[in-house]
């Protein structure tokens, strides 16, 4: 699991590569927490290159999303497809975290 962090204007983009499972979820959560912009600001988590997410990964995503929600900052997930999208759907995450198919849409919403 790798996390690449970049900026698109004011939006922080965290692009995940690999698997978010019971072995990597803790590292994912730590890297995501480090990537949270100081002083607030929106963040988009791009899952396009994630092939596998288990409940350990969902838990980590939820922890991060709760932090943004508590601080009143925007956080969304984009790029998920196939079985990863199915896991997010079963978990009902689309009801609590904004989800976008494309990164461009996610960034546009984050800037809005």
């Amino acid at each position: 699991m790798e996390l690449r962090v970049s900026k698109h204007n004011a939006v922080t983009i965290a692009e995940v590569d690999g698997r978010i499972d019971g072995m990597t979820a803790k590292e994912f959560e730590e890297k995501m927490a480090e990537a949270i912009p100081e002083g607030g600001g929106p963040m988009v988590c791009d899952l396009s290159h994630v092939s596998y997410v288990s409940s350990a990964g969902l838990r980590a995503i939820l922890v991060i999303a709760k932090r943004f929600s508590k601080d009143g900052n925007f956080f969304s997930v984009c790029g998920h497809s196939g079985p990863v999208a199915e896991v997010l759907r079963i978990s009902g995450f689309e009801k609590i975290i904004p989800m976008h198919e494309s990164r461009a849409d996610a960034v546009e919403k984050a800037e809005g």
Partner: peptide, 17 residues
């Protein structure tokens, strides 16, 4: 899975999957 984000429990999803 209908709870709002503030009320959503961390965990419990594994066995649902």
């Amino acid at each position: 899975t209908d709870a709002a984000i503030e009320d959503r429990k961390i965990g419990g999803l594994g066995l649902k999957l």
